[in-house]
Design a protein around this nucleic acid. Structure first.
Lengths: 126, 126
DNA sequence: ATTCATATATGTAAATATCATATATCATTT
DNA sequence: AAATGATATATGATATTTACATATATGAAT
């Protein structure tokens, strides 16, 4: 559903973290190099995200531009060409930073939760 | 700081939740109606956010347009005019929805944390 | 008289997400 | 053999949001 009491939501459902897919990608690439399409399943099962395919490819190029991953074509016979992405040291550093930032985000979220409980837990109208 | 190992960050620091200020505003307005500028302190102390003032006003107008808050001018003598915002029922409904969505976001974050620990906890290189 | 905090707002640019579309190959089905 | 679907990589166009700057005006304090 995309509305609450008739009030339309805007761009997307609430609560999404901008570029959250990036640390997810980096975590998957920390285990083993992979190509874009091959990351799709992993991103859903490991990171619980439905990633737009086009967005994924653009994100990977962006991350390569930022130096967090490097890519090389994998050309094998009887196989489609694949661009294989590998995480870089800078990528690991960013992943570490992202995890630390998400810890702060997590605290903010829980702060909101506790505030919400205080206001609404004893309110029978909701 | 705005970089990791020389790789520049992009728009803003990682980990921010889009429009997170909105449930924060709604939580504050759940306690008592307030005007835009008056919300600034509360947003920092209660929600741990440094909110751009201009952004705050535009957000409030947007939220009014969406029916989550209503506003009325407060014109008193020897005081500046203030536009007082009050939360609506739709606003409370959205706040409830936002909290539920943030619970899912929270799970995603913790899923990433546990995956990160598995990969990096025994790795001495980081 | 001037400066600072209060108070509300708009202009503009950049980054990101969403949705659609394009292209091509490999595998399977008819 | 032809057609379809899954694999694989990518771009175009649009909308939303954020960030930063700027504009305006009043009340309070120096």
């Amino acid at each position: 559903m995309n509305s609450v009491n008739g009030a339309p939501f805007r761009s997307r459902d609430f609560g999404t973290i901008e570029r959250f897919v990036e640390p997810c990608i980096l975590l998957l690439l920390s285990k083993e190099p992979a190509h874009g399409y091959g990351l799709l399943e992993g991103l859903e099962t490991h990171c619980g995200e439905k990633v737009d395919v086009g967005d994924l490819y653009r994100t990977l190029r962006r991350m390569e531009h930022d130096g967090w991953v490097s890519s090389a074509w994998d050309r094998k016979e009887n196989q489609r060409d694949k661009r294989i992405y590998t995480i870089t040291e800078e990528g690991s550093a960013f992943l570490k930073h992202a995890v630390a930032s998400l810890r702060e985000t997590d605290e903010l979220i829980h702060h909101l939760f506790s505030g919400y409980k205080k206001v609404y837990s004893n309110n029978k109208t909701l």
